[in-house]
Design a protein around this nucleic acid. Structure first.
Lengths: 182, 182
DNA sequence: CGTGCTATTTATAATCG
DNA sequence: TCGATTATAAATAGCAC
């Protein structure tokens, strides 16, 4: 933004790129802090330098880093969903298990609702751009519970598989069951 | 940065603050993406809006959030019917089923506790401001830990499967792809 | 409340020492 | 390579609808 308009693409020239990086990162951090001050909102910026071992973080590291780290891992979970998804492994016996689990899940859900931590999020159906502090807090617990359920199911599956392996034609672990796309 | 120089302090005027927030957050996100593009560095920005139910996250904030939402939405688990089961695979699973049910029931109890804790945090008549980055971070960390547990569980299953192979047409067990360590 | 539209303030790309 | 300088590109505060 100065003597010349810059194209939005990778700056090949090494020196220029590094200079630009330093300047812009500095400006960015300033901007974030300003926004936070002016509007009193929580915000976090993390910038990993190519050669720098420790990323630049605002505000003071630890906390922000963890939050961001977690956030960045979420997409991986999405991948995990696809991974385990394949074609039938064990299909019919679990019906009853499902029933009971579902029942318990329903109870869980009712509690969740009672916590009123989500109609907004779930309501959008997909227009989720961000999570508020309240939502994150609520979600943390919710996720914990859900993850716990999944873990237990997996445990059961593991034991079952060891006890009586079965030949399958496809990929057995249909994770969509755990992480439905919709 | 315009008609008048702005003081670096909380903007008391509600309307002005909101307007400024929207404008600056937008600009900030643009800046982050530009830096990332120009210098090819990893960066992440998270902005929690006060009134905004949804915080803005860059990059792929939407995706991350969507995943969480999906977890939360995990209601019916209809597809889970396909999940396990193949040909009479788990038969005496009832026992384990019951065991799982017990565990889920325990979870319900735990959740009730969580619920009360959560209410306390969220309570106070909209005193959401009371929730600091600390709390959110802690919860986020908890979730991360839980997710890690599941991942390890799945890895263990993967090894077990290799030890006692099951005929498959694909290559279902590349868990590292699903749960990259990094 | 959101949408534009300037007038100015900032952020910076290029340059210089 | 690193600041300091400067000419421009961007961002945006205050207004008008």
């Amino acid at each position: 933004m100065a003597r010349k308009k810059v194209k939005l693409e990778y700056i090949a020239n090494d020196a220029s790129r590094r200079a630009t990086f330093k300047k812009r990162r500095k400006g960015l951090i300033k901007k974030v802090s300003e926004l936070s001050t002016l509007c009193d909102v929580k915000a976090c910026l993390v910038v990993y330098g190519h050669d720098e071992p420790v990323p630049e973080v605002w505000p003071s590291g630890a906390d922000a880093v963890r939050v961001v780290a977690r956030l960045k891992r979420m997409p991986e979970m999405e991948q995990s969903k696809k991974m385990m998804d394949q074609e039938g492994f064990m299909r019919q016996r679990i019906a009853k298990l499902q029933e009971q689990v579902r029942k318990l899940e329903r109870e869980n859900r009712e509690m969740e609702i009672s916590l009123s931590m989500n109609e907004r999020m779930l309501g959008g159906g997909g227009g989720l751009e961000a999570i508020g502090v309240e939502e994150v807090t609520g979600l943390a617990w919710l996720v914990e519970v859900k993850v716990g359920e999944v873990r237990r199911r997996i445990e059961a599956m593991s034991k079952a598989a060891k006890a009586a392996p079965v030949a399958t034609s496809g990929n057995p672990w249909i994770m969509d069951s755990f992480f439905p796309l919709n």
